[in-house]
Design a protein around this nucleic acid. Structure first.
Lengths: 181, 181
DNA sequence: CTCAATTTGTTAATTAGTAAACACAAGTAC
DNA sequence: GTACTTGTGTTTACTAATTAACAAATTGAG
């Protein structure tokens, strides 16, 4: 991967941080480009070097995280579910401000469905309806079931502001997956 | 004041933050330019656009704070000592990591004397040996006395990690000044 | 509605930051 | 001793960010 100029990364980091902060303060529609420019301490014009508009910024922010999660899935491919889940929950924990914003409250609806869609895609390969315990089950239905459950638990975790440490979340999600896949 | 390019300010902020962080981790002499570059996330060459070397960086960091304090003195000129002190201790509090580093431990000796020198200069105008209670006292001696006392108390406050809130520090320093000037 | 103020999106000229390469100085290991 | 690493300070060509100006679209108050 051709390494990216550090100024680009700094600018984008600042903007991502800014949009999360501002979304915690007001409705996304009420955020102006000027707000973002001020908060991120970046020239207004600079924003247009990277994004079409604020919606594009939010989209790319979401896709960045989805892609990160995809990478984690790759890394976790040959681990058991519990160990793999630990990588996942670690990432969720490290990006608490983003996921909490997206799942626990305001930004919710769009991100939730994008997140679910991603999970269905990821679990597709894991679902094995040929396995004894899954004989006779519909493959797509299985995928939907597991992914929805996963999203639901993650949502619960954020809405309740981490009622258990992420390690516990990982361990329990891991064994629930184990049981169902 | 001609406003300064925001990139310059960002870079210098990052470097100042970096040098404080690193000085908390190791001896100043052991800090390399590369360390600073890594920590501040700034190209190594960029550092030389602003500073001669790391000593120059530290010097300028110190002078920046001294100048800020000088501005505060100007603003506080027509306030009573207690109210004026509040501005002071607020600034010290807001820049805890710097002043604590400089007064409570390692960086100490050089900064302490620079700080004292500054205080003597600032108090010079306040000392009034013509006043009744100060009749017969040596003007320079008075300055040295008050400034040393001030530094001492501030040092105590940082070494003991803010044993009282900055408002209390201000109030007590203020009335001690009142009593002596 | 209408006028004024914001906000937007784009542009051109300029400036600061960047990476990479360089010669050189100190250590440090062998 | 020499070879090897590590850090320094400088330069060059290049790229991203900046400011300021602009016209057009939105918004909002009277």
């Amino acid at each position: 991967m051709a390494k990216i100029d550090r100024r680009i990364l700094k600018t984008q980091e600042a903007l991502k941080k800014a949009v999360i902060e501002l979304m915690n303060e007001k409705n996304f529609d009420d955020i102006t480009i000027q707000d973002l420019s001020d908060r991120a301490n970046v020239s207004r014009g600079t924003i247009y070097l990277h994004y079409m508009d604020k919606y594009d910024l939010l989209d790319k922010l979401i896709e960045t995280h989805i892609n990160e999660l995809r990478e984690i899935c790759k890394a976790a491919a040959d681990m058991d579910f519990v160990t793999g889940s630990l990588l996942w929950t670690e990432y969720l924990d490290n990006n608490y401000s983003f996921f909490s914003l997206m799942l626990a409250s305001k930004g919710a609806p769009f991100f939730r469905s994008r997140f679910l869609e991603f999970l269905i895609e990821e679990f597709k390969d894991e679902v094995d309806v040929a396995k004894g315990k899954n004989l006779g089950l519909n493959e797509q239905l299985m995928g939907q079931f597991v992914a929805s459950a996963y999203v639901g638990v993650v949502e619960w975790w954020f809405i309740n502001e981490k009622p258990v440490p992420h390690e516990v979340l990982a361990e329990q999600l891991g064994s629930l997956l184990e049981r169902n896949l």
